[in-house]
C-alpha cells in the first residue's frame, strides 16, 4: 500500500500551518488517497487560513473557499452542476474543521447528506477553534482546557461530552461513514478510497492533534494521535450501509491516562476525574465492541 502511493504532493509546502500540524497532514494524506480529479469546497477554519495566504495557495487541485457554515452546501451546488453538465470522473470534496462541522456547518451538512449528493465530506477534528485562539467547540472532549473552558476554582475545563458527529451522519442513512486518525495513514487512505468509490454522500472524520492547542511538543503529534487510538479514547471504525466494523482493534487497551498526561490541556485533571473519563471510554469501547 505504502509503495503504490503517489510521490506527487497535491498540497504544497510553504503553507503557514504551525510546525507539527495534524490537520495539515490529514489534508495531505487525503489528497494522496483521492488524486487530482477532485474539486474541494473548504470552510473557513485552520486549513483555509493556512493554505491560502492571498495571493498564494498551497492547493494543486481546484479549490473554493466557502464561508464557515456552508462547505457542504457549496459542495452540493458543485456536484449538481457537474451532474447537469454530464461531467463524470470528478469527485466533489467538502473539507471543514470540527467547528465548521459539529457547530456552524452541521445544518448544511445534514441537508446535503439528506438530499443524497454524491460527495465526500471530510472533517479534520482538532477539537476546538484553533486558529482564532483555542475556543471550545462541541467536539472538544470532556475535561479539556480551552480559552473558553478555563480551569479555576469553579470550572474544571469543558463540562460537556464530545458531540458524536459520525453517529449523527450515520443516522441519516449515509452509505459510508468512517473515523480515521493521522497516526494510521494506511487506514485513513483506504477509507478515503472507499468513500471515493461509493456513490452518494460519504463522511470521514479525522482525529488531528494540535500541538499549540492541546499543549504538547510538536514532535509528539503522531504519538498523541496513536495513544488516542491505543487507549480507546478515539475509535477507528467504518459504517458501511449501516454495518459497523472496527478497523483497528488495540490488542490490549492502554489506560486513558497515558493519552491525557501527554497533553497540557488535561494537566489539571485529578485522579478521580481521570477515572471518570476512563469509565466513559470503557463504556464506549464496550458499546462499539472494541474490548
Amino acid at each position: 500500500m505504502r509503495e503504490e502511493l503517489v510521490e506527487e504532493e497535491l498540497f504544497a509546502p510553504g503553507h503557514r500551518a504551525c510546525a507539527g500540524c495534524g490537520a495539515t497532514l490529514a489534508v495531505r494524506l487525503a489528497l494522496k488517497a483521492l488524486g487530482k480529479n477532485v474539486i474541494v469546497a473548504n470552510a473557513t477554519g485552520c486549513v483555509e487560513v493556512i493554505s491560502t495566504p492571498y495571493p498564494e495557495t498551497a492547493w494543486r487541485v481546484p479549490w473554493i473557499h466557502a464561508a464557515f457554515e456552508n462547505a457542504a452546501a457549496v459542495a452540493s451546488g458543485v456536484e449538481a452542476a457537474l451532474k447537469s453538465l454530464g461531467r463524470r470522473g470528478v469527485k466533489v470534496v467538502a473539507i471543514a474543521g470540527d467547528g465548521g462541522t459539529a457547530d456552524i456547518g452541521l445544518q448544511a451538512l445534514s441537508g446535503a447528506v439528506e438530499r443524497g449528493h454524491d460527495f465526500i465530506y471530510i472533517c479534520y477534528d482538532n477539537e476546538a477553534y484553533m486558529n482564532t485562539g483555542i475556543q471550545r467547540s462541541s467536539a472538544t472532549p470532556f475535561g479539556a482546557w480551552t480559552t473558553t473552558t478555563p480551569v479555576g476554582r469553579v470550572k474544571r475545563g469543558k463540562d460537556r461530552p464530545k458531540k458524536d458527529v459520525p453517529a449523527i451522519i450515520a443516522a441519516h442513512g449515509a452509505p459510508y461513514v468512517a473515523t480515521a486518525s493521522v497516526a494510521y495513514p494506511i487506514d485513513l487512505i483506504k477509507k478515503l478510497r472507499k468513500a471515493a468509490a461509493t456513490e452518494g454522500p460519504t463522511y470521514i472524520h479525522i482525529h488531528c492533534p494540535c500541538p499549540p492547542g492541546w499543549r504538547f511538543d510538536s514532535d509528539k503529534m503522531i504519538e498523541v494521535a496513536r495513544l488516542a487510538v491505543l487507549s480507546g479514547a478515539w475509535i477507528l471504525y467504518e459504517i458501511k450501509n449501516g454495518r459497523l466494523n472496527v478497523t483497528i482493534k488495540p490488542p490490549k487497551r492502554r489506560p486513558v491516562s497515558d493519552y491525557l498526561k501527554m497533553q497540557g490541556r488535561f494537566k489539571h485533571l485529578t485522579d478521580a476525574e481521570i477515572a471518570e473519563i476512563q469509565r466513559t471510554v470503557d463504556e464506549r469501547c464496550r458499546h462499539l465492541g472494541v474490548g
Binding site: 495539515t24 503529534m221 503522531i222
Partner: peptide
Amino acid sequence: LYCPDAVISRGKPPGVDYRYCKGCGICAN
C-alpha cells in the same frame, strides 16, 4: 508519510527539503 509539510522525499536515505522544513521533529520521533 508522516511529514505535515511534505518536505521529505522517499528513499534510502530520504531527502529533506530544508527550504520548507519547520523543524517539528515528527520524523525523528
